[in-house]
Design a protein around this nucleic acid. Structure first.
Lengths: 293, 293
DNA sequence: GATCGGCCCTAAACCGCTTTACTAAAGCGG
DNA sequence: CCGCTTTAGTAAAGCGGTTTAGGGCCGATC
């Protein structure tokens, strides 16, 4: 009933466990005849090495973890993350790894980390002083930071948030807009602090705005979805100041703003300019195509 | 340098390995004082149980696998799958499980299965006679089939492909269309056979068309993406027959057809009707909103 | 004819944890 | 003060693999 183990195969083939192991991992250690017999018996019995046992004894699991600082349910709703994970997936495929998505367990990334059987982590959006990083280090799990502030201790891959944001804002200012609105990314882990990414993009926006001597922008926070973008647009309409251009920190939100604006009779970009961030493929399908970073 | 093990903690706390294990898993077996001491030492040392060792010994890994019959890179491009996985993710979260995505390794699902350390599988789009299923059974891994033909051996959750397709086709026929075009889903695993899902949807379309006495539809195969949909539209234009309505087996493809049609000057739905399948949230954002199943 | 080196193969240790079976000490009523 | 049950903790046997050290057996060498 239960799983076929290496011992079963060994007995059935009349050899030792070692021989069976060799048959799969070091065939050159076995004679031709024995090798073939063992492999045949293994196949007939439907033997497959137990992954956990293998991982334990080899000290490697063949799995790459993606540390996600937000609920799993929100990941797939965010095309930017989807794109990223897709890319990771391609690489994993190439190297015969499997991808393990690791979201917080009961709100704690630390405990999630220690539960995961992983050879290394890609961690998304983690600050360099995050406690989760300390846990990783202490357990000796190699880690690459993505979308972080960077850290001298770890390799990191990052988006030029500040530069991109600055360019986006400058683009609008050069078009003649003076009153801008900014739609800020929502916090992910704690409900309070904004993400490092949002902070960096905000810096970029502000640099450009200050540089042009334009008035302070109006800020609204909205989730990464079309609906949230639409709500943000309503919020802006109700505000006192009438921004003529919107800087959204994500494309999804920007799309929401755009469609809500058109639904309420505004022409885009004539009456309202919108610039996103992410450059999702989806941004090109909208009508008109979304300007984005 | 290397990982802190249960033995390290045991020595440091002056107790047996058992006591340390109890501290985490059966605290009621330990005295108050010992319990606290062990936990404190463990925390100070940064101890975390090795997941593989734990999995091996407990015969459960706390991981749910999703068996995906296609390349990982195409999964995230397909919003329908994303939605599905998102739902699975929510459930996993609730039950403190992690989600392992398992695509084919070197084109073989069977070998991917045996590499994955998983307590159970959700398998997508597997026929009931798939060899991968046999492997699962032999290894005693519980499995739920999704989007399959159903199987007496396994619990299954399915979309009413045939019924839905039939309704979609009937809808168009009732609008007065007679010459329909069908955009078929692409094969996933082997390059040859169409998927069971595609077969079932095709049956539904044909039942409706035959029932209405309409001429045979024109069929084109296209991937699940907006671009593929656009290409399919071009292909149809070049064909001899001029379909006035298109039945697409996925929303993404339908959106592609729609936007390509508009780009080429056709009005939708006046000049060309398009019906999708999946009911993605995205389908509601298009202009006009996509009719879908 | 004893010695040596290769070739095949095996026994046993080990990976890090859980769990069963068991013991020493403590508590308790009589 | 004795035998009984509880309490608190331990030793050792797994879980299912890999890997190291070594043991027969063979022909070749001196």
């Amino acid at each position: 009933m239960s799983r076929v183990t290496i011992a079963d195969v060994a007995i059935a083939a009349g050899v030792s466990k070692t021989a069976v192991s060799f048959a799969f991992n070091n065939p050159e250690n076995l004679g031709q005849a024995t090798l073939e017999r063992v492999l045949r018996v293994a196949r007939d019995l439907g033997y497959a090495p137990h992954p956990a046992a293998r991982a334990l004894s080899m000290r490697r699991s063949g799995t790459m973890g993606v540390l996600i600082p937000q609920r799993l349910s929100t990941v797939f709703a965010n095309p930017f993350l989807s794109e990223l994970i897709q890319g990771l997936g391609e690489q994993c495929e190439e190297h015969d790894l499997t991808l393990l998505l690791v979201p917080p367990v009961d709100g704690s990334l630390e405990s999630a980390i220690s539960q995961a059987s992983v050879d290394g982590f890609i961690s998304l959006g983690l600050g360099p002083d995050d406690k989760a990083l300390a846990v990783l280090d202490r357990n000796g799990i190699p880690t690459v930071l993505v979308d972080s502030d960077g850290s001298p201790e770890h390799p990191a891959v990052n988006v030029d948030d500040k530069g991109g944001a600055e360019e986006a804002a400058r683009h609008l200012l050069e078009l003649g807009h003076t009153q801008l609105a900014i739609i800020v990314l929502p916090p992910t882990r704690s409900e309070l602090e904004t993400t490092p990414t949002a902070v960096r993009r905000m810096e970029g926006y502000e640099v450009a705005i200050a540089g042009a001597g334009a008035p302070a922008p109006e800020c609204v926070t909205a989730g990464i979805s079309v609906e949230a973008g639409a709500r943000a647009f309503q919020q802006l309409r109700e505000g006192a100041r009438r921004a003529t251009a919107v800087l959204a920190m994500s494309d999804m939100t920007a799309i929401g703003v755009m469609s809500a604006a058109r639904a309420s009779g505004l022409r885009v970009p004539d009456d309202l300019s919108v610039v996103g961030f992410d450059d999702l493929p989806m941004a090109a399908w909208t009508n008109p195509p979304l300007t984005t970073v």
